[in-house]
Design a protein around this nucleic acid. Structure first.
Lengths: 229, 229
DNA sequence: GTCTATAACGAGATAGAC
DNA sequence: GTCTATCTCGTTATAGAC
């Protein structure tokens, strides 16, 4: 019985993976807005109604692709982060940033899916939040560790920003003062500005040696959140 | 004769504007990937072939929309910039940043068109470059003016980055040293990271008081390029 | 010269009967 | 699960109105 169920589950997992692979191929060719269950089914030699046994709607397939993309990026960032000595906070930070960039360049269409324009008519459900948070949590961990030791510089905090900064710190990083908490969120957004600009062509005729440029921009972001070598 | 030509030109301009307006409506509803000449023509009570008198292809219509969006953003940023005293470099910088954010929030679909995911199968021609450069040129002007006076702080420049920094300065801002030139390009990209994250929903449950958060993030960017009050 | 309409092409998506 | 009839699309050729 367990063999039969195991085989069944295995077959189901294989078909699910094949559907997502083909959907990713369409993502690259046509964009998320034109993702069509029928076209995926056709490419797989299936009939469109059969797909509904695996994904109840186009939106659920999209959601699965989004979560996969966030997880793939998150794993890449975590793997890069793991290779750095725990005490070297600046290098931990830049390792995460560079992993994000490398992953984005290797998976441009999946990057566009998660950090690019929203898909018209689609709203990501809350189930995407854990996967979407992984890179942010890594960066939070670096700054938190630096704050535990002596490795975090003092940052200014304008009075006008204090209420929001304190709310942020309480909600996102309870063991961090408000100053690095705001700086961290800003740097997190700015990181994806750098990556997106390179990926989406805004650096055309502006930045040539993009790897070097990015490496130092990431180091400057680390400096901006208070990390010191 | 000039009257007849004037009327003709006026009619042509009106139809052209109506086509673009309707296309923008479709952009909002369906996304750039699904922009369809036929649907635009249908909504205007025209026949699809008639549109070819105004735009030689779907891609050229897209290009016109992209240039219009960049120009609209550029004008908004320039208008905000004009209102600030020339000597107040930090406020000139933040005024441009805040104008970008306000414009983006008011025109989310046009923002997605120019700074979001690329449209599959479409490559923007070089004719979009001047319009696309307007915001960047404004920021360059602020930093250049600060450098002419005493208002620009010294920035570090790692040796590894020097060649690219010098190339950038020479190509983009001939009268600026390489240090602020690289910092400026990075800050420019980071600005759009902040705006994009807010617009595309990444700040959901992360940033609440987004206006205050952004204002100070923009001020920190100004500080990062060396601008001092 | 300037525009619009008709008709058609080849390719692809889609809905529904079977 | 298959098949077919009917849609969509971008684009062009052509003919005629102003």
């Amino acid at each position: 019985m367990s063999t039969a169920q195991g085989a069944r589950a295995r077959a189901r997992a294989e078909v699910t993976a094949a559907i997502k692979d083909e959907a990713r191929r369409q993502l690259a060719a046509e964009g998320a807005a034109r993702l069509s269950l029928r076209a995926v089914a056709r490419a797989l030699g299936m009939v469109s109604s059969a797909l509904y046994r695996y994904f109840p709607s186009r939106d659920e397939l999209l959601t699965a692709l989004i979560i996969d993309a966030y997880d793939s990026l998150g794993e890449a960032a975590e793997a890069a982060h793991r290779k750095v000595a725990e005490s070297d906070h600046v290098r931990r930070w830049t390792a995460v940033c560079e992993a994000v960039r490398v992953w984005a360049l290797a998976h441009p269409h999946e990057y566009a899916l998660i950090y690019g324009s929203p898909v018209p008519g689609y709203a990501a459900p809350e189930t995407t939040v854990p996967a979407a948070s992984r890179v942010g949590l890594l960066l939070i961990g670096v700054v938190r560790d630096a704050h535990r030791g002596p490795g975090l510089a003092d940052l200014p905090l304008p009075a006008e920003l204090r209420p929001e900064a304190e709310r942020m710190a309480a909600d996102l990083v309870p063991d961090l003062p408000p100053e690095p908490a705001v700086a961290l969120v800003a740097a997190w957004a700015e990181l994806f500005g750098l990556v997106g600009f390179e990926l989406f062509g805004q650096f055309h005729r502006v930045v040539e040696d993009r790897e070097t440029f990015f490496r130092h921009a990431a180091a400057r972001l680390a400096h901006g959140v208070g990390l010191r070598p």
